[in-house]
Amino acid sequence: MKQEEYQELVKELTPKEKRVSHALIAFVSGGLVGVLCTIIFEILSTTFEMGKSSATVWTVIILIGIASFLTALGFFDRWVKKCQCGLIVPTTGFAHSITSSALDYKKDGLITGLGSNFFKLAGSVILYGILSGFIFALIKVVFYG
């Protein structure tokens, strides 16, 4: 069998990913994280009388804290599997990627293991986050002053 013919056969026999159902699951679970954020935000701004900006910062911190804690307890990965990208795309996923890398590599030493692998997955998010922030800021300054 020729290579191209085989690759066609592979395409035919490989099951299709359930993209629609995955997207719906991610939409709902990601939405629930958003609802949780709003609840925390409301509590902070009404009960604790925080200003909008500090309430936002504290909401993110609390969410990161919860996600990291759950990763450390060892069952957040099971939730991620069920919720698809609903838990990975929000800031909970960012925290989870760092904590899970840290857990994997802590036994390889503080510098050679934990330190150098801490941002193994999150590194791309930081780099391209900053880069796109810079580009959009530039566009804003050039075109809108």
Partner: peptide, 13 residues
């Protein structure tokens, strides 16, 4: 693949 606790969603294959 990914860190153990990351639990990245996997393809059917």
């Amino acid at each position: 693949r990914y860190p153990v606790e990351y639990g990245a969603p996997k393809k059917e294959c």
